[in-house]
């Protein structure tokens, strides 16, 4: 598999290590009422789709950035890659502005 790194161009997936579903970026609020349940959900439960999956890959043997790769789990086709920091920043601006 070749991952289109947003900064470095096409890179062999071998240079990366795999973490899992991109939902791991949405760490629950530990002070919330339902923190127990939310962390159980966050830590253990997965959609595990057969099809398009957004997932976290770490460029360990490269620039050590985290990417969110969109990939089809049935065909292994890679549909795109973004820097995880950009996605996380977008997510936090959205929550701050209440969008």
């Amino acid at each position: 598999m070749i991952i289109p790194h947003p900064l470095l161009g096409p890179r062999d997936a071998q240079e990366f290590t795999y973490l899992g579903d991109a939902s791991l970026l949405n760490r629950p609020d530990w002070q919330a009422e339902n923190a127990d349940a939310a962390f159980y959900d966050y830590q253990y439960l997965r959609n595990n789709p057969a099809g398009v999956h957004r997932e976290l890959w770490f460029h360990e043997q490269g620039d050590r950035s985290w990417l969110i790769v969109t990939r089809n789990t049935v065909t292994h086709e890679i549909l795109g890659a973004e820097l995880a920091v950009d996605v996380a920043r977008d997510m936090s601006t959205k929550t701050e502005t209440g969008v």
Binding site: M1, A13, T17, Y18, G20, D21, N48, A50, H53, E55, R71, T73, V74, T75, H76
Partner: peptide, 10 residues
């Protein structure tokens, strides 16, 4: 080591 429903590896 990555999520897959393809019955083949790399």
């Amino acid at each position: 080591g990555y999520n897959s429903y393809a019955q083949r590896g790399n």
